[in-house]
């Protein structure tokens, strides 16, 4: 387990960075390394803070009915994002939506963008345009207080595909967990256009 490198939290930008990282974490393949009591209580806390009591209840009901919560989410993750019946519902890669293929030109453009701002993919990384890496990148930008970069990245790279992905997940998800997670991501990214990023109370 890797501990959060950003402890202790000091500023609102760090909090926003944490929110992005939490969303990225939630999209990882579920395993016991991270999908823990601790994770779930954080998730419930976030739902409480957002006034998502109905969602929290749905989630708790689903979990209470499950014989094996982790396996159930693994099956759901596999079905939605890897290889699923009736078909992989929502591949979590931007170029599938924009280029109609994995590893399209979009994935090069996004990699170049990471690099242009002083970031790169780690050796163990997934494809450059993976949703997880895009959220991690946003987390770094927030942590650096790079508001302009965050806005530009959202507008140029993230928002052109994410709503299509989120819509497919919401339509095809059988478990409330992923509906809730994509709604979080929606919540933290989609409204940017309307309000702009507010990093400090001002």
């Amino acid at each position: 387990m890797v501990t959060n490198p950003k402890m202790p939290i000091q500023s609102a930008t760090d909090h926003i960075a944490t929110l992005y990282r939490f969303c990225a974490q939630s999209m990882q393949y579920p395993d016991s390394e991270w999908f823990s009591e601790n994770y779930l209580s954080s998730l419930y806390g976030l739902l409480d803070a957002l006034g998502g009591s109905a969602e929290k209840e749905k989630l708790q009901t689903a979990f209470s009915r499950s014989k094996d919560i982790l396996e159930e989410l693994q099956i759901e993750h596999t079905r939605l994002f890897i290889n699923g019946l009736p078909h992989v519902a929502a591949p979590p890669y931007g170029s599938v939506y924009l280029d109609k293929t994995l590893r399209g030109k979009y994935s090069d453009d996004i990699l170049l963008y990471y690099r242009s701002l002083g970031y790169d993919l780690a050796a163990h990384a997934d494809l450059p345009d993976s949703l997880i890496h895009q959220l991690e990148f946003l987390s770094f930008l927030a942590e650096d207080g790079n508001r302009e970069g965050e806005e530009e990245f959202l507008a140029r790279f993230f928002l052109p595909w994410y709503p299509m992905f989120a819509a497919q997940v919401k339509e095809e998800a059988q478990h409330p967990f992923y509906r809730i997670i994509v709604s979080f991501i929606d919540f933290f990214t989609q409204e940017e256009k309307e309000y702009g990023v507010q990093h400090n109370e001002a």
């Binding site: 890797v2 990282r21 974490q25 991270w34 601790n38 994770y39 976030l46 970031y119 770094f140």
Partner: peptide
């Protein structure tokens, strides 16, 4: 925000696939 984010940070266990690198 701080009250919500603080526990979230403790739930992050996966290493980031994005790293800082020399500026290009």
């Amino acid at each position: 925000l701080a009250a919500v984010a603080l526990p979230l940070s403790g739930a992050i266990a996966s290493e980031s696939g994005i790293t800082r690198s020399p500026l290009e």
